[in-house]
Design a protein around this nucleic acid. Sequence first.
RNA 1: GCGCCUAUAGCUCAGGGGAUAGAGCACCGGCCUCCGGAGCCGGGUGCGGAGGUUCGAAUCCUCCUAGGCGCACCA
Length: 574
Amino acid sequence: MRTMGVIERTVEDLRGRLAGAWRAAAEAGELPGGELPDFTLGRPSEAGHGDFTSNLALLLARTARKSPRAVGEALVRRFPAGATPVREVEVAGPGFLNFHLEPGWIQPVVEEVLRAGAGYGQAPARGIKVNVEFVSANPTGPLNVVNARAAAFGDALAAVLQAAGYDACREFYVNDAGGQFEKLALAMEVRARQELGEEVELPEGAYPGEYVRDLARLWLRQWDAPAEPALRLDLLRREDPALREAMGRFAVESVVEEQRRVLERYGVRFDRWSRESEIRARGLDGGPEWVVEELRRRGAVEEREGALWFLSDRYGDEKPRVLRRSNGELTYFVPDVAYHVDKFRRGFDRVIDIWGQDHHGYVARMRAALAALGYDTGRFEVLINQMVRLVRGGEVVRMSKRRGEYVTMEELLDEVGTDAARFFFLMRTVNSHMDFDLDLAKLQGEANPVYYVQYAHARIASILRQGAGEGLTPPGPGEVPAERLTDPAELELMRKLGEFPEEIRLAAEERAPHRIAVYARELAAAFHAFYTRCRVLDAAEPELTRARLGLTDATRIVLARALGLLGVSAPERM
RNA sequence: GCGCCUAUAGCUCAGGGGAUAGAGCACCGGCCUCCGGAGCCGGGUGCGGAGGUUCGAAUCCUCCUAGGCGCACCA
């Protein structure tokens, strides 16, 4: 049995008492009985409206044939005593019930945070396995800024899921086979020939990126063949499939290694790197051929014009999709289905994919395939990571992938750093297009929201250092005279601390880690306001100092945890 | 043409049925005898348009407009 946070406890108490007031009023004939409506009990939008507010009177007014305010008055008259110290319940506005509590209600939160430490907000394990697959960039070139956004999002989502009690796995799918691979391998061969001095054009079907030159050069350096260029060129011009394949493999491994390195620099570490080549190699044992046969067995395919079609329109897709082309090759789709089946077979209760906007048209067919194979598609989710435009000096930075011109993820990190990049991406919802202001992200100053939050943490660290120098150490659990914390800024800060567990839960449920970024900013703001109003270290007031040190330390814990979920550092000094 | 996403303050964005719609930037004022001024406080005729549902709509539904992205026997 888990212990509830002070806000959860209070909400439950007030809800119960409000329901009790309704029952009592109904029994007295003041209000109609029947079903209790699904009413809200939450934080009001405005400070003057109390600590909690409810819309119950508004919802009951219709069936009661009374004005909402009259219903409210009846509920207030019957409102029973209980655990939470309620100073006043007022009927306000069109009929809201506003609960004004005694300041003591929130004070236990300091104790809760100090007791839980870094585990504050951590939900107990639910025993639900979630797979989060993200980035999964083609191994044909360096990662770009959209990949950086996906990486920040996927990593933070997994962290938030873990905090919410899920068993989350971060996974990267390497498309190291199929058409893109062939294009890369071909480009390697031609680039190597160019490198050896041959005047040869890059053909249409080859991967155009300039970096393939570097890879070809690296490959040549380690090529196990006679060193004479003429001989080497001769070998390459034979266009030997095995040699080309080897070059392709070399390129893929180099690129994947490079991607892994950049991601690690970004603080993203995957639990698993799955490979399309391995899925393909499985054949009838859960591989692409198995998918085809299983769909056939279930009557979901049709032979037409020499190709094999999956009748995906029977499963919610727009139209049938090709599984095997008339030239005998499987489409990319088939191993991809096998890969998703593999995730379910590995025991994941939920499978979450983060895809780029340009793949959203692919969602319906993947869903259809899983449905046709008998999987519950409610367990499969696709989140779409929208485009990123880089803005510098008020101008959109032009990028063209076709011409191989784009800002790489690494260049982005060089320019603004990991903390700013991650925080900027995570301030936004994932499914809306975003402008990334490079100038703002680079600013080491007040304008930059990431520093605002980090500054709060550094400031706390500084206070604690200063206090330690004066023999004023933060109190442990059980040593905080929290009843001394009554300033509005202190109450607001405690309230924010209390909201953290719920924020984690909502961020996980809504797949919205940006909630944590927004929360971190709000928590930092609440601390800065507290700091300005309330002096922490005051030798003349040892009790108050102890209480405020406890609150300060609790804020440090939660700020560090929130930043940690986002993958942003929480510096002691800046 | 069809589908998905988006449209909120001058700019970048939160808010996804509740009261007077928020924050940062920018702009204009204040605030250090004192723990870090990378801070605090104050300053706002904004929900693309039109209908609809509702006691109540930025939020839900329909249509329209604008932008992005898809709609291969590519991946």
